[in-house]
Design a protein around this nucleic acid. Sequence first.
DNA 1: AAGACGAAAGTGGTTGA
DNA 2: TCAACAACTTTCGTCTT
Length: 315
Amino acid sequence: MQKSKSKSKSEKEEGLTKCPYCGSTAIVRDYQRGSLVCENCGRVLKDDVMDRGPEWRAFSQEQREKRSRGGAPMTYTIHDKGLTTRIDWRNRDAKGKSLSPKRRSQMYRLRKWHRRARISDAMERNLAFALSEMDRMASQLGLPRNVREMASMTYRDAVQKQLIRGRSIEGVVSAAIYAACRECGIPRTLEETAEASRVDKKEIGRSYRFISRELDLHLLPTNPASYVSRFGSELDLSGEAQSEAIELIKKAKEKGLTSGRSPTGIAAAAIYITTVMTGERRTQNDVAKVAKVTEVTVRNRYKELAEELDLETEI
DNA sequence: AAGACGAAAGTGGTTGA
DNA sequence: TCAACAACTTTCGTCTT
């Protein structure tokens, strides 16, 4: 009795039981990154939910007091990994009294050197700029925290190996994000990445190929199935239809129909077929629009799939 | 009238010499 | 660096519902 009451209260405190973007109830709390993420569409619903839990296990009250956490968790998305020290700008001591002139000039010098140490060289400045830009893009694309961390680490690697020289920071940032999305299984297309970026698709593609070669990312070609849930929710499809589309893609892959074809095209065709078969019909045009391919491509893929998989397409 | 279909020409990217 | 090539897009006319 008491248990169920406290449970409902904690749910209420979290505030979100349904994704406002796609309506899914599959909301996951990512404790490590401190955010609420919709598993269905991959959007971050609430960021920077502070982790108030203890840092370690504690077995007694005394230990609990000793071991409670202090400070924010470390992150790769800030150029000094969030491990910053700060010197107050007010010329006051700990008790709020004014400092003597001698002390004051000392503090002035300290602050100056502290600032210089923090953003010390070109690389640090580069990182600081790039990571803030990355954060902006990631928000615009609605990416969860883990993808941002992944992208940041990739970018750090690229800087360390001096791959940025002669290339635009923006391009490499976009490429790192594009790669991280694929790595985390919530791919965004090059176009989508380019929309959130200040550089064009071509540049991002070039940078991506370059860093993936130099950093040995060797990512597998995108699985069309990972687009299904996103496109599906944009089209208001039921869960059954979506999983049927994924099944279809699996079969197509076994027959080798997917290689060399654009994953978005395959996903679009599979979705179109299942909408026809399950009666939740969407037009080729609608499907093509959310997948950002043309009707013609949807048609071609759909014809291939229907032929090779011997689907009795009762239209 | 909207959607589906297909042909033909054009485009951007990859590959191999 | 260039040409060949496959995949994809654009465009447009025709057929179906």
